[in-house]
Design a protein around this nucleic acid. Structure first.
Length: 480
RNA sequence: GGCGCGUUCGUCUAUCGGUUAGGACGUUAGAUUCUCAAUCUAGCAAGAGGGGUUCGAUUCCCCUACGCGCUACCA
């Protein structure tokens, strides 16, 4: 009875897992784990009009990619299956009717036309747009007749006209709402599906959820949920409303203004650990002031009460920095796999310039090559996607040059490299010597060699790169 | 419009009523250097406004302003 059970309840209406859902998933997961409890997933697919095919699978995949694992869910089952609301329809109907029997809900036969007209009038008169409770006055007989005649109906929550509904929020304290301002919410839609409000309360209770940790956007609906718990005679779980992640313009994080899908960040070359770490610093700070820490470490120190109430802005720049930190921490072997997997899973058209298919090999030989290149580029990479522009020249000759080559210093460099031994120190000595002989700055010679070999003015250290590239290939590029 | 939630550097945040208001990202300058990074050093940068309470408010209370959320047979 005392076990901590948390959940996230995504609805399959988007192309993937929303980063905001990933955020609440992280907190729910960490909280459950830190209390030796269970974290589960329930799919709330009650809106058929917005249903997106394949969404559920992608949500599950993204969660898995992030490393947030669930004990129960639509894919793995569990003691409270099914975990998909569309498969639990009879349940909601039963509970909605129970509410009707106890007088806490009623049938409503109002048409969409009437409702929208009513709302328009209310708006015109500057009144809060709420259902006017017309059907609450229907007699039992009227209701029975209407149903018998096949009239479409919904079941609405019968909210008391007076009083106040209060609930305690673990993060924000007590929050109260006047009952007269709470709408007679639809609980069961005319298509037989429950609305969020009914579904969430019934399932959270049946699935023995102990803590509801969800987004701030639900605060206003919580009194309806509290009322439902009261009417059913159930003990409500603990509530904690997380602040909403925001766009740089402070609006709720949305796909129109930001990449919001976890898959977007994966495609941009972010590592799951970095994403989670960054998310963890949203509205919360490690008690020791650490910036870089693992989920496991978060499990040790997270306290719901220490979560901030202010909605943070999702700052991709800081995420990039953090991702770079993680790339630098990653072992060579792991990073090789990350890079080769990343490249092979990515559409060729997204890689510009000199990057071509030779870079994308997943074979052993290519992996060895990547391993050699790694020390030259790892501290220059903030995302895996930058590998291409950083290391592309190892695999293919530059197709274009950032600027025209200067012949004189290039010649000097060529002479130096032609006759020298192919190692870092020998090359450096030769270049400096030849530069001095020609009365040039060694710097300029280095730069010209760089442009000729890589096509760019910036990149990994030149001599180390030449060592890997080999003498033959280097001289070939110099003679272009 | 109504209801709710919120307000510390540009951004993420620290602060058990007493601090030169600290850290991180970004940014600026410098060191290093074959470029760019990485690294190191230094700098710039904040308590929305007004009332209270208090010996003392960033911290507690109220008001205003501003921002955000909700206001569907969407979640």
């Amino acid at each position: 009875m005392n076990t901590v059970r948390t959940r996230i309840a995504p609805s399959p209406t988007g192309q993937d897992l929303h980063i905001g859902n990933a955020y609440t998933a992280l907190i729910n997961y960490v909280f459950a784990v830190s209390h030796g409890g269970q974290f589960l997933i329930r799919i709330e697919d009650t809106d058929r009009t917005r249903f997106v095919e394949g969404s559920e699978q992608r949500i599950l995949e993204s969660l898995k990619w992030l490393g947030i694992t669930h004990a129960e869910g639509p894919d793995v089952g569990g003691p409270f299956a099914p975990y998909r609301q569309s498969e639990r329809l009879e349940l909601y109907k039963k509970y909605a009717e129970e509410l009707v029997d106890t007088g806490h809900a009623y049938y409503c036969f109002c048409t969409a036309d009437r409702l929208s007209k009513m709302r328009k009038d209310q708006e015109a008169n500057h009144k809060p747009p709420m259902y006017d409770k017309k059907c609450r006055a229907n007699s039992k007989q009227q209701t029975a007749n209407s149903i018998k005649n096949g009239e479409k109906y919904v079941i609405r929550l019968n909210v008391p006209d007076e009083g106040v509904t209060t609930f305690h929020d673990e993060i924000r304290g007590d929050i109260s709402f006047e009952n007269k301002l709470i709408d007679d919410q639809v609980l069961l839609k005319s298509d037989g599906y429950p609305t969020y409000h009914l579904g969430v309360v019934v399932d959270d209770h049946l699935m023995e959820i102990s803590h509801i940790i969800r987004g701030e956007e639900w605060i206003s609906s919580t009194p309806k949920h509290i009322l439902l718990y009261q009417f059913f005679g159930w003990t409500p779980p603990v509530f904690a409303h997380m602040p909403l992640l925001r766009n740089p313009d402070k609006s709720k994080l949305s796909k129109r203004k930001n990449p919001v899908w976890v898959g977007d960040y994966k495609a941009k070359g972010f590592l799951p650990e970095a994403i989670l770490n960054y998310l963890a610093t949203m509205a919360w700070a490690h008690p020791e002031g650490k910036e870089i820490f693992s989920v496991l470490e978060m499990v040790r120190v997270l306290d719901l009460k220490s979560i901030q109430t202010t909605a943070p802005i999702f700052d991709v720049e800081k995420l990039r920095w953090m991702n770079g930190e993680y790339i630098r921490q990653t072992t060579d072997d792991t990073l090789v796999h990350l890079i080769t997997d990343f490249l092979s899973s990515r559409p060729l058209s997204r890689d510009p310039g000199i990057l071509d298919s030779r870079l994308r090999g997943n074979d052993k030989k290519n992996k060895e090559m990547v391993l050699k290149i790694l020390p030259l580029i790892r501290e220059r990479m903030k995302t895996l996607a930058e590998y291409g522009s950083l290391a592309g020249f190892f695999f293919a000759r530059p197709k274009e040059f950032e600027r025209p080559l200067k012949v004189a210093p290039l010649k000097v460099g060529g002479i130096a490299l032609q006759s020298c031994e192919w190692n870092h120190d020998a090359m450096e000595a030769a270049i400096r010597l030849e530069a001095e002989k020609a009365g040039m700055k060694a710097k300029d010679v280095f730069m010209e060699l760089r442009v000729a070999v890589t096509g760019k003015t910036v990149g990994p250290p030149l001599l180390e790169s030449l060592e890997i590239l080999g003498k033959e290939e280097t001289l070939m590029r110099l003679s272009l």
